[in-house]
């Protein structure tokens, strides 16, 4: 079984580890690093529960080999409020009741970070297309959309006042 030494930055911290070729990134994050905020849902790249940011882009970590993330910068939900202050998206999901059971929430939020980076002022339709790869079985999505709208507004205000 081939082993590879990989180094990556996760939530601002550098991590070096030895991994098998076939280890999936989501297992590396959850089992090797104990960062269990990244969930495994469908395991087939449909549901988005395992969504993380890899070099700033949302990807489904169940369909990505850990070894391919060598040299990458990764953000998981644990890294979003690393300084102790909730990210505007985290705050908005709280304010707008954007979650019930919370299983989809980490993936939904990280996907939304990427969405708002590419499109800071999305329409409702663009938000719905933007989270089309992230399934929620509780909320019916309405409050998730409202959360993302609130965060978009707050993040725009923030960037204007800077």
């Amino acid at each position: 079984m081939a082993k590879h030494t990989i180094t990556m930055t996760i939530n601002g911290e550098q991590v070096t580890a030895e991994v098998d070729s076939r280890l999936l990134l989501v297992h590396f994050i959850r089992e090797n690093l104990d960062l269990t905020g990244t969930h495994i849902g469908c395991d087939t790249s449909n549901c988005g529960a395992c969504t993380i940011l890899l070099n700033g882009q949302s990807i489904k970590s169940c369909t990505y080999l850990a070894v391919r993330a060598d040299g990458a910068e990764i953000t998981t939900i644990e890294g979003l409020a690393a300084d102790g202050t909730n990210h505007p998206l985290q705050k908005a999901f709280h304010d707008q009741h954007g979650l019930h059971c919370g299983f989809c929430t980490p993936g939904m939020i990280l996907r939304s970070v990427d969405l708002l980076k590419n499109n800071p002022n999305p329409t409702e339709e663009e938000i719905r297309w933007g989270i089309s790869g992230n399934l929620c079985r509780c909320t019916g999505y309405n409050n998730i959309v409202k959360s993302i709208q609130q965060a978009a507004k707050e993040m725009q205000n923030e960037s204007e006042s800077v």
Binding site: S45, G48, T51, Q57, S58, I59, K60, T63, Y64, R111, D114, L115, W129, G130, S132, G133, N134
Partner: peptide
Amino acid sequence: TADPSVRNA
């Protein structure tokens, strides 16, 4: 085609 996260890869 798929969804935005899959299209990122």
